[in-house]
Design a binder for these strands. Structure first.
Length: 483
RNA sequence: GGCCCCAUCGUCUAGGCAGGUCUAGGACACAGGCUUUUCAAGCCUGCAGCAGGGGUUCAAAUCCCCUUGGGGUCACCA
């Protein structure tokens, strides 16, 4: 029996939950599900300066919001815990010792000052900044004594001299080779006693039985260091999959400065989680039948690494908005109401009750939940000061509009029954009398009641707004048109 | 700059690994039209691409090489 597929996502809790994390999580989870394996969430908080619990919680919350749940993780536990590296702190020491014993690493007593000067010299000579191997020559027993005497030091990877280090990238379906001379003696254990990412992730991936490492392309250049570690430990390395990097519109790696990257921002903007997941699935991947709207489960059913691409896709908001609109319009009204309330686009379902007849009309006019409030605002309060000129259709005189609007007011005051059909019929009849195009009669009313030339269908809106409020707003408009 | 990755319409992509059926298909965006009560939605039409050069071959978007372009990475951050 083949070993169970185990994949993981290993975010660092040092900031806002990143859209790139969700992207990589999506492919990890999709593959795990397709392979009948497990998807693990591990928190990589070995950077004691920058890691925060708030950030960790936000990451978990955002991934859950997207429905990208994990089988094992810091909050749900699992057989390979703990799943937070700070809780695994005690584990790494023995592996460092083992590495030291096997000659895969060495203690380095160089001061940060010396390292910095070294690098400056190298840069000045246009050489690659990298460790010069000075402490490799310190006798191991001597090094141990100095370390035990409390001398500050780090532990570095001892990159073997000469020869290449290679690994296969499963997305490119090709080997990638790096000359060892090209690889730096990476710090594995920091002077504060904490492991760096490189050590901790290799040790944890091994301990957690990770079979496939699916991560972003930016990790390719540090993969040989990881491969060297597996070799030094005598462990079998996992398979490596390097996903293309999400890009800003200028093709650079997606970044906060040029593009919104926080998953919380997407949520606040009113993107639906299933739409965002679908959109992410469209980047670097395609369904075998070309479908563009698909659920996570459908993606899993069709999942195949051969369909994952290598080109870094630009994060295209136009397409995301289009997809989101598709999902938004497909929502049932009860579902839409729930989401509007839960995403705080409206105070309560009761307030939505009042505008129930127009909710479907608004639904088909918004692409994001956040657009609901601006569009529906006029149902709840009188329009703010709009330009009086908006009341006057092209090729009409303000004075004529004023008269027409006054006549409309009379019609509306008398309309019976108070239904949108009756209102429409009456106003159309008025337009006929006036020998105006119906639209020219509608627009002043629209602006008077909604404060805008763009709104949900007029008569349904009037019916919901109510007679009293409609008349009040018409009066306000007439005042604006007064000579 | 060294190393590494990538390269089909403006954008996301299909096709490429198993060359011919590709005068390169779809979607978003954009433009025009239909519909129409504004705005949307919907429907129709249009615009637009194999980065360049060599090679292999009867035949190359597809395989190989070079160039160019873009990106990543060179931390006691991940």
């Amino acid at each position: 029996m083949a070993t169970e597929t185990r994949v993981r996502i290993a975010p660092s809790p040092t900031g806002e939950p990143h859209v790139g994390t969700a992207y990589v999580a999506l492919f990890n989870r999709a593959y795990a599900r397709a392979a009948g394996g497990k998807f693990i969430l591990r928190i990589e908080d070995t950077d004691r300066e920058r890691s925060t619990r708030e950030s960790e919680e936000a990451i978990l919350r955002s991934l859950r919001w997207l429905g990208l749940e994990w089988d094992e993780g810091p909050d749900v536990g699992g057989p390979y815990g703990p799943y937070r590296q700070s809780d695994r702190r005690g584990l790494y020491g023995q592996f460092v010792e083992e590495l030291l014993g096997r000659g895969g690493a060495f203690r380095c007593f160089c001061t940060p000052d010396r390292i910095e000067q070294l690098r400056e010299r190298q840069r000045a000579r246009k050489q690659q900044p990298r460790y010069d191997g000075l402490c490799r020559s310190v006798d191991p027993a001597e090094a141990r004594r100095r370390a035990e005497a409390g001398e500050p030091h780090v532990v570095r990877l001892e990159v073997p001299p000469g020869g290449p280090t290679t690994f296969r990238d499963e997305i490119r379906r090709e080997a990638i080779a790096f000359e060892n001379a090209q690889i730096d003696d990476q710090v594995l254990l920091k002077s504060d006693g904490w492991p760096t990412y490189h050590l901790a992730s290799v040790v944890d991936d091994h301990l957690m039985g990770i079979t496939d490492v699916i991560r972003a392309e930016e990790w390719i250049s540090s993969t040989p260091k990881h491969v060297l570690l597996y070799q030094a430990f005598g462990w079998t390395a996992p398979r490596f999959f390097h996903m293309p990097l999400l890009r800003n519109s200028d093709k650079s790696k997606i970044s906060k400065r040029k593009n919104p990257t926080s998953l919380e921002w997407y949520r606040q903007q009113g993107y639906l989680p299933e739409a965002l997941v679908n959109f992410l699935g469209l980047l670097g991947w395609s369904m075998s039948d070309g479908r563009e709207k698909f659920s996570f489960d459908e993606m899993v059913a069709d999942f195949n690494w051969e369909r994952v691409g290598t080109t870094g896709p630009i994060f295209d908001f136009h397409k995301l908005d289009w997809l989101n609109g598709l999902y938004l319009r497909a929502l049932s009204i009860p579902d839409l109401r729930r989401r509007l309330v839960s995403e705080r686009c409206i105070e309560s379902e009761e307030r939505l009750e009042a505008i129930a007849p127009v909710l479907p009309l608004i639904q088909e006019r918004i692409k994001k939940l956040s657009e609901f409030r601006p569009m529906a605002d006029f149902f709840f309060q009188d329009p703010r000061d709009y330009e009086p000129a908006l009341l006057v259709p092209k090729k009409r005189e303000a004075s004529d509009v004023r008269q027409a609007l006054a006549r409309s007011r009379e019609v509306i005051a008398r309309a019976d029954p108070w239904t949108w059909e009756k209102l429409e019929a009456d106003i159309r009849a008025l337009a006929d009398q006036l020998q105006w195009k119906p639209g020219d009669c509608f627009m002043p009313l629209r602006v008077a009641v909604t404060g805008s030339t763009q709104s949900p269908p007029l008569f349904q809106s009037l019916a919901v707004v109510g007679r009293e409020v409609t008349l009040r707003r018409i009066d306000a408009a007439l005042a604006k048109l007064a000579p």
